[in-house]
Amino acid sequence: MRQFFGWLSLVVLMVFLVIGALFIMRPFGEPPSVMDDYIIDNAQEEAASNNVVAAVLFDYRGFDTLGEATVLFAAVTGALLVLRASHKKEET
């Protein structure tokens, strides 16, 4: 019973935060974003790419893409490490 009320209060709190935040958020696209306009106007010239999304991914925010690729790299390395054979190991 205590556990149930604990979970309930957690859910209520989260719903309050998330739904509350959604209600007082500004409408989508308002106010007009200076950053977006700059990128849309200049991507073809600066990054020489017709696909503005690709320009953002690899030019304007390329470092984030490098980071996300590294997240995947870490996940794969970690999965292979955890699933590795353990029988060759000796006592430490």
């Binding site: 990054a47 020489a48 790419s49 017709n50 690709a54 320009a55 690899f58 893409t65």
Partner: peptide, 10 residues
């Protein structure tokens, strides 16, 4: 044939 390093990074 555009994009500079973007296609190579892709």
């Amino acid at each position: 044939w555009t994009g500079g390093v973007i296609p190579l990074m892709n």
